[in-house]
Every structure is written in C-alpha cells, then in structure tokens.
Amino acid sequence: MVAFTEEIVDVGGTKVHTLKGGTGEPLLVLHGAGGNNGWLKSIDALADKYTVYYPSHPGYGESERPDWLETIPDMAAFYTWYLETLGLEGIRAVGFSMGGWIASEIAATCGHSFSKLMLVGSVGIKPNVGEIADLFIISPAQVLDLMFHDPSQAPEYQAVYGREFTPEEMMVAEGNREMAVRLCWKPYMHDARLTSLLARVNIPTRMVWGKNDQIVPVECGEMFNKAIKGSDLVVIDNCGHSPQVEKPDEFIKTALDFLA
C-alpha cells in the first residue's frame, strides 16, 4: 500500500482537507455526492503511478464551505483556485459521479486545468430516456442498495459500508448529504448548459460506467461520449454505480491504461 498523508490546503482562507499520496505526475481525484470514502484499493493503485490529490469537497467531511459556494459551477470555480494554490495545471483528473460533474465543468470552462479527464458514472447531463435516481427522497440505506449491482463482489464493501458507524461518522454523513442537497437539489443533478459547453473540451476523455448502474443510466455515459470530441466510453459488465469499489481490478486496469 502506498503511504498517504492528510493535508490542509488553504484556498483563499478556506481549509480543504486533502488526502495526498504516491509518486509521479499529479492526479486530482474528485469524490461523489456521498463524500470522500478514504484511501481505498482503487485510489491506492492510482497512487502507485501518480501523485494523487484526493480532497474532500468544500462543505464535505472536514473541509470548510465558503459562504458563497452553493452550486456545481461555484465548486468548479473553487477547484481552479485550489489547483492554482497548489501550483498545479494541465494535470490528470478523475471524477466519480458528482465529482465527474465538477471535473467536466472545470474542463469545459477552464481549458488549461486538465490534460486528461476520466468521468466515472458521472452526473451533470439529464438523460433523455431514463432518470437519475432521486437519492434525496430515499434513505441512505436505500441509496446504498441502489449503488451496487452485487455488493458481494466488492472486496471493500464490508469495511466501507457494512460496519457500525460512530455518532461522529453519522454526523459527517448527514452533513455530506446536506451539502449534496445544497449543490444538486434543483435542477436535480444536472445543468442544462453542460452538454453544449462540453464541445469546448479538447483533451483525451474517457467515460467509465457500470453496465447495471441504477443511479445514473449508462445513457448518460453515451451522452457525455457524444458531447466530448474524441472521447471513449468503457462499460463494465455486472457492475453498478461505483466500479472503483464494486469492480476495482477492472476499474484500475481501464484507468491506468487511459491515464498512461
């Protein structure tokens, strides 16, 4: 396992809790609406080749939220500041679910931020046929049920989701959920202008989707793929919304192939 450290990055007075580890060129990893799940196997594998920056978004976990930050475009603006603070530019980025939305917003509006972009089960585009599951109107336990196609094939499922949580962890999870509500309530998990803006993205981009994603339909992956020139879409069989947890080996392989 690659050693990682916990760092506080001060972005214009806002403290951002960041997990950092690995060696090599920098790689930004942006978590989904549920929050930062920590240094899992898939993150560790990325850190084997790259220096991974894995922040908790402002308003999530131990990271502060500046008063003005209310939307995903605000979040994108914030992260360009975060990158500038760290002296990072033209780096690789991976975004999971809502983190994919943030990453694609950055890529579309700030062309020099990233050199390669990978979007995993990303929200941000409204599907034409299906719907993005409403995660706010159901309980956290129901969200978890939707997230996995077959939890038994996720080696870290028990460690991450199957154990008893402390009251402090429950408070953090509730706070994370409230931050997701702040960012994504309406329009729910999408932005009507994103598809048009994605035409500006001119870096290598790969979408990765679980074929059995019950939260964000594969159709959304196809729409991202169509909107971004020269991109590709990798669909992983027998896999739900979080390939990095449910099928880590397949996820790692496709990620490392693409990012190399």
Binding site: F136, I137, I138, S139, M171, R177, E178, A180, V181
Partner: peptide, 14 residues
C-alpha cells in the same frame, strides 16, 4: 411516511 418526506436533508438544523 418515510423520514425523508417529513425531514428532507437540510430542513432541520442539528
């Protein structure tokens, strides 16, 4: 009704 109907996330302070 489900808890989420009565108390959507963020509706109540701690």
């Amino acid at each position: 009704g489900p808890r989420e109907y009565w108390a959507p996330p963020g509706y109540f302070s701690q």
